[in-house]
Structure formats: C-alpha cells, structure tokens
C-alpha cells in the first residue's frame, strides 16, 4: 500500500525521539561529570562546592535534570502502560509520577541556586 496517509497526533513519535535526544544529552553530561570528578584532586567540600558554584556546571546540571524529567516520564509511562491495566489506577500512578518529576526538577533548582 503506497501513498498511505498517516494520521494521528504524532505524539508517539515525538516522545520516542525526545527520549533518544535526552538520552544523548544525559550521556554527554555523564561523561563530562565523571571525567571532572576523576581528574586529579580528592573531592573535599571546597572542591565540591566550587564545582557547583560555577555557572556552566549549574546550567549543565539543570539541563541534565530537564532531560531526565522528559526521559523518565516516557520510560515510566511505558512501564505503566505495559503492566497496569485498570485505567483508574494507571491514571492515578501517572499523575503521581508527573508530580514526582516536577518535584525532582524543583528541588534540583533549589539545590543549585540556593
């Protein structure tokens, strides 16, 4: 069947793509963060505080958390769709997950810019 018109809201493709793009962002952050932490000096409070005092680290960490929020939402929603069949329970859990993710992001901002 050629020339088939694909209809729908396309949010399936959007989320699928978003999960992969956010994965790459988090992977890059992880490699940078691990290299910074393993390069050289032992981690004292001063080193730790100064690392998170830098603007780029704060922004990068926030970007990481924003990526994690979207990535985890797609992933956990997939798990709930597979294993939780009753609609009411699934909706309740989905709302719980969304609130948890929002709290994670809010808390991260609070930690980074205190």
């Amino acid at each position: 069947m050629t020339g088939r018109i694909v209809t729908g809201a396309h949010y399936g493709l959007r989320d699928w793509l978003a999960q992969r793009i956010t994965a790459v962002i988090m992977a890059v952050y992880t490699i940078i963060a691990v290299s910074v932490l393993l390069s050289g000096h032992p981690i004292t409070y001063a080193v730790w505080r100064d690392l998170f005092a830098q603007g780029w680290m704060r922004v990068a960490t926030l970007l990481f958390m924003a990526s994690l929020a979207w990535h985890a939402w797609v992933g956990v929603r997939d798990i709930l769709m597979d294993y939780i069949q009753p609609a009411g329970l699934r909706l309740t859990l989905e709302v719980g997950v969304l609130l948890t993710i929002a709290a994670y992001v809010g808390w991260t901002i609070q930690i980074l810019w205190r």
Binding site: Y45, R49, A72, V76, I79, Y104, W107, Q110
Partner: peptide, 19 residues
C-alpha cells in the same frame, strides 16, 4: 531505569545535604 527513577529522591537528598 525504574530503580534509578525511584532512587533519585535519595540521591538528590545526598546532593542537597552535601552542598
């Protein structure tokens, strides 16, 4: 993935306290 999502509250708590 599910484990990391659940454990994030603990990791954030440790980051919060450590800073």
């Amino acid at each position: 993935g599910a484990l990391l999502f659940v454990a994030l509250v603990w990791l954030l708590w440790m980051l919060d306290v450590s800073l």
